[in-house]
Amino acid sequence: MTIVEVKNISYTYPDGIEVFKNISFKVAEGESLGIIGPNGAGKTTLLLALSGLINNSGEIIINGEIKSEKNINDIRKKISFVFQNPDDQLFMPHVEEDISFGLNKLGYSEEEINDIVKKSLNSAGLDGFELRSSHHLSLGQKKRVCLAAAFARSPEILLLDEPSNELDPGGRKELAGLIQDFKGTKLIVSHDLNMIGEICDNVMILNNSIIKAIGGSKKILSDKNLMESNSLEVPYIYR
């Protein structure tokens, strides 16, 4: 079953630069799609469009509903977005407040919220971090708190923007494991092609405003000519 359907969407920045033009693709329920491409290809902008944070032309259908201003809040309840910079995402002073932010409007009671916070922290390997200040945490811990906050909303779709960016190899491995454990639909934007290869079923290359290729991870990531023509390189796992 298709959970995300993108039909001919286009977006131009206010300064006139066209980021993507008439792109269309589908994502099946439970699928992991890696979105790759050179810098400035519009990967992050695509995630912003999917979550209704920018106004694009064309149609985006999430779980059978066409995204519009009227239903955007309901659609956002199904999506969790993990932003590239955790300092943009962890806006509350303490970890507990950050993870519980907005959960009461999803119909949870205070007791349930406390339980969710504990379980989410546990699943991210951060037991006992409830009262820690966000600015005291290391980058790896911040990224895991972001994931815990995303998991806490029990989303159907998880959008991840450069999740392994700036992490050390250990932190990257831990984070990849946590992402892999999430059983819902995942759309991952990353330059970490090894991680994309490990986690994603399918890969999409975005470049020069269009989709250059979309298909199975191994097929796309191991195609040397295709990768190099899009300023990418074949990851180690497929060399």
Binding site: K77, D87, G102, L106
Partner: peptide, 21 residues
């Protein structure tokens, strides 16, 4: 940064008027 934080808040139910949706 304020714009990015605002996006993150919207994604978690913020209604833009100090409340939640």
């Amino acid at each position: 940064r304020a714009e990015r934080v605002y996006h993150a808040m919207l994604m978690r139910g913020y209604d833009g008027n100090g409340g939640l949706q």
